[in-house]
Design a protein around this nucleic acid. Structure first.
Length: 488
RNA sequence: GAGCCACUAGCUCAGUCGGUAGAGCACCUGACUUUUAAUCAAGGUGUCGCUGGUUCGAGUCCAGCAUGGCUCACCA
């Protein structure tokens, strides 16, 4: 036997050896499952006295000498089994006696209700399907250690039922999103995750290397530029749900890799995108939760369309009592920000100052779903310029519980303007802003072939899942969040 | 990247003034043929995150480091 195990691990390995010595396969094979736990509970009226076979992990055991009870947990829930020496025979009863919490078993038996009124499977046969060699966490307190929960998510899923619920919901949310978009004629596509130019967003990329080509590659930071190339190619409605990677800080709202949905619709504008956003979120909520009225961390949120629409400047006027319509110079903007108590470093310019004022004074109020419209051009290098005010763009972000949920615009399809915007970004990059965009000549060339006017939308899928599952941390909606390795 | 906090048995947690390391669950042995956080009796589990320092003596005090959590910065 291997050494260096603590007593608990040694005992389980010893049991494994004993089972094998008796000819029992502790890591068995196929098992005919006719019912799930919840199905047995729900179907009691029809199933009483009938034979069922279930399989799952034994989570509790109460021996009573020559009989005993246990709970078997599967994907749907857990159901009690009743094992009696008289019914299963000496060998099987010995096996049952030796079972550990965490072992995976198959049980065939008849459905009945105990004296205490619990629907239970009265075992006629019991089969060990997988011996568990590691002890489970405390059956009452579960696994609380957050570090361990994320590192050993498999254990978290076994012992904390609400965790499983979140990830089932996540799957349903994404399914509902696809259903909504497919029904509106959007085509799902896949574009490269490794880019020669990391574009489409302001973010630091991960850098990797291709050996055979001996070249540097970036993990994508957005889906945008490839999807827009597809509009040029004539794919009028496209979307992608995909992983993107940003080499930035980790927090309860940020994981280095996360899931984004982006879509592009030819001949639409950002008003269409607002309508689509609110309808899609409402659809997903209804489909998965059965309602558009939800609670997030104790706050009541109403996702029912239409959502509030307000321009960034009007919102600032409302919450900060400053009208940037009347402040047209960089100097004036800087002065106004100073008066509001915002530190301005360098010469960020009016647009970035407006955005900082917005973040400080408006964002904390955006609890209910709100579209903030018309972002400054300086921070929107891929959005179409407003006809009546070229300092702003046809861009909006959707906010819920003070967080950005979606970002969208009427897409810039003027290649000459786009080149100038990229050049401005390149200048900022040269000045030390390593989150500024890179020049993408091929994207410009694509626009020169002609991209139809279009609306585009990006939705942070993880944040949507957080909202709909009432999760406080992004790590609670990502199965295996990024963690530093621990010295074991 | 900065500040604060946490880290003790497989899990959840106590640990007083610096003086031989504790409980519940889990585990082991026994009793119990409708229990349900089953119960009853008996058993003992440990690199007190790591490395140093102070001290006759450190889980406890001090310093550094690791990992995590929260807040902030960056960002979505």
């Amino acid at each position: 036997m291997e050494t260096g195990f603590n007593e608990l691990l040694q005992v389980r390995r010893q049991k494994l050896d004993e089972l094998q010595a008796k000819g029992v396969d502790p890591f068995g094979g196929k098992y005919e499952v006719t019912h799930h736990a919840q199905g047995v509970l729900d179907g009691f009226a029809q199933l009483e006295g009938q034979s069922v076979s279930i399989a799952g992990r034994m989570m509790s055991k109460r021996g009573q000498g020559k009989a005993g009870f246990a709970h078997v947990k599967d994907l749907t829930g857990s159901v009690q089994i009743y094992v009696r020496l008289d019914d299963v025979g000496e060998d099987t009863y010995q096996l049952f006696n030796k079972l550990d919490l965490g072992d995976i078993i198959g049980v065939r038996g008849t459905v009945f209700k105990t004296k205490m009124g619990e629907t239970t499977v009265w075992a006629k046969e019991l089969t060990l399907l997988t011996k568990s060699l590691q002890p489970l966490p405390d059956k009452w307190h579960g696994l609380k250690d957050v570090d361990l929960r994320y590192r050993q998510r498999y254990v978290d899923l076994i012992v904390n039922p609400e965790v499983q619920r979140v990830f089932v919901l996540r799957s349903q949310i994404i399914k509902a999103m696809r259903k909504f978009l497919d029904s509106r004629g959007f085509l799902e596509v896949e574009t490269p995750t490794m880019h020669t130019i990391a574009g489409g967003a302001a973010a630091r990329p991960f850098i990797t290397h291709h050996n055979a080509l001996d070249m540097q590659l970036y993990m994508r930071i957005a889906l945008e530029l490839h999807l827009k190339r597809l509009l040029v190619g004539g794919m009028e409605r496209v979307y992608e749900i995909g992983r993107i990677f940003r080499n930035e800080g980790i927090s309860t709202k940020h994981n280095p890799e996360f899931t984004m949905m982006e879509l592009y619709q030819a001949y639409a504008d950002y008003h269409d995108m607002m309508k689509l956003t609110e309808e899609m979120v409402a659809f997903i909520a209804t489909e998965t939760l059965g309602t558009t009225k939800i609670t997030y961390q104790g706050q009541a949120i109403d996702l029912t369309p239409p959502w509030r629409r307000i321009t960034m400047l009007d919102a600032i006027k409302e919450y900060a009592k400053v009208d940037f319509n009347e402040i047209t110079t960089d100097e004036g903007a800087e002065k106004a920000a100073c008066q509001l108590g915002i530190q301005v470093e360098g010469n960020p310019g009016r647009g970035k100052i407006i955005n900082e004022v917005f973040e400080a004074f408006v964002e904390p109020h955006l609890v209910q779903p709100t579209f903030i419209m018309d972002y400054p051009i300086e921070i929107s290098p891929l959005a179409k310029r407003k006809k009546d005010n070229p300092a702003f763009t046809y861009r909006f972000e959707a906010f819920i519980v003070c967080r950005e949920l979606a970002n969208a615009f009427s897409e810039l399809n003027d290649p000459i303007d786009q080149r100038e915007r990229f050049l401005e970004q390149v200048k900022q990059r040269a000045a030390g802003d390593d989150e500024a965009h890179m020049m993408d000549e091929d994207f410009i060339r694509a626009l020169e072939y002609g991209m139809p006017p279009a609306g585009g939308l990006g939705v942070g899928v993880d944040r949507l899942v957080m909202l709909l599952t009432d999760s406080a941390s992004i790590r609670d909606v990502i199965l295996f969040p990024t963690m530093k390795p621990r010295e074991d």
